[in-house]
Design a protein around this nucleic acid. Structure first.
Lengths: 210, 210
DNA sequence: TAGAGATTGTGAACACAAACGCAAATAAGG
DNA sequence: CCTTATTTGCGTTTGTGTTCACAATCTCTA
């Protein structure tokens, strides 16, 4: 009786599966096969089945999966029973865009507060959210019991802010700073580094055109 | 005599190495060891050595790497001898932020044109770039011989636009649409899917706090 | 020029992820 | 109730990426 380790990549694919299932559910489609789902997600069917198998047996052989059951199951795995609260730190170009990014709420995430250290930004209102002084972040995070933070600060600040966040109870950080953040391993960090992505693309675009 | 395949991940790490090397070069530091570099990049030394080994032998045993040589070598691998031209399609929240994102230029990428299909957006100027009608994208891409495109369109448009881009000569796409794009394999696509990243983070933040 | 100390380069072992392929289960039709 | 057509679940194989550990190389000093 041993617990199978769940691949990281499997976790990353669950949300895209969820999106497809929501789409099916809205169309009042009850049953979906791994094959059908794989076409919707541009993957392959056996990978989908394997992914689900890490969590249990959700389908019926010869039939497929019940859309609404599967949808609930994945929501449970991803702890998406209710809208998750998120704070944003750093209201520069990227930060402002994220505050206005309408997909977040409809996909289950709600930016409840935004903070910056620039006096010129404090007080302005974006998409219904008033930018607050970063000094007040701790109070909000603790009283609202927030775990997830989006970091869109300049590189020079990022590491310092991340360390403070760790002490405030945040344990998941989505950073847009082009630098690695060193955190204890109970704090999950994802960095989205746009220039690195462009560099990768550039490399492959040359490789492919030869 | 066989060619070793270069791991995808190795390519992704080259740009962060480059950043660290630029920093060293600015400080007039001539020589760096894999160990020192690994501390700057928050990785480990043997991975750095392995990564470099796919492209050749750049170091001196007992000594380390010559910073400026290594810097030039990596720039060559990543084809970063000159600033790369990029076009942006979709001037919504994210698109606007990217147009204003100052890091791109300093890291070797220049957004030379931006396009949208919304008449209200066409003609406005952001960070020195005038938004043009998407119908004029083909002309610009072909005359300027642009290969890389940043896609920040709504999901409903993304797939259609991507297909058109492929026919215009674009062979690298950085997409912010939360959907997979199906392209021939000579066109490199990277999708940045923010909600999926948040879902991953949420999952692990629960796992870690148990 | 010999020995000590530093650091690279890389084969081999290990770990993780994707793809394959088939037995097991189910439904439907005669 | 038996056969056929589906489709899942999952063990096995294949592929890819990381870590380890050490021989090879280099500099310096006596």
């Amino acid at each position: 009786m041993r617990i199978k380790p769940i691949p990281d990549e499997t976790i990353s694919r669950l949300f895209p599966y969820l999106r497809a299932l929501i789409c099916l559910s809205e169309k009042k489609i009850d049953i979906v096969s791994s094959n059908h789902l794989s076409e919707m997600c541009n993957t392959n069917a056996s990978m989908i089945r394997k992914d689900f198998s890490f969590f249990g047996e959700f389908g019926k052989r010869g039939i497929g999966y019940n859309v609404d059951n599967l949808l609930e199951t994945i929501r449970n795995i991803l702890k998406m029973q209710e809208i998750k609260k998120v704070v944003l730190i750093g209201v520069g170009n990227i930060g402002k865009a994220l505050l206005s990014y309408s997909n977040f709420y409809s996909e289950g995430y709600n930016i409840v507060a935004a903070f910056d250290n620039d006096e010129k930004k404090i007080g302005i209102k974006i998409n219904g959210i008033i930018v607050e002084d970063i000094k007040d972040a701790e109070k909000t995070i603790k009283t609202e019991n927030i775990r997830i933070c989006i970091l869109a600060t300049p590189v020079s600040e990022t590491s310092k802010v991340a360390n403070k966040l760790a002490n405030m109870g945040i344990n998941a950080i989505l950073s847009f700073s082009p630098c690695r953040i060193n955190m204890p391993k109970n704090i999950e960090v994802t960095c989205i580094d746009l220039s690195t992505e462009l560099a990768r693309l550039t490399y492959y675009s040359y490789i492919h055109s030869q």
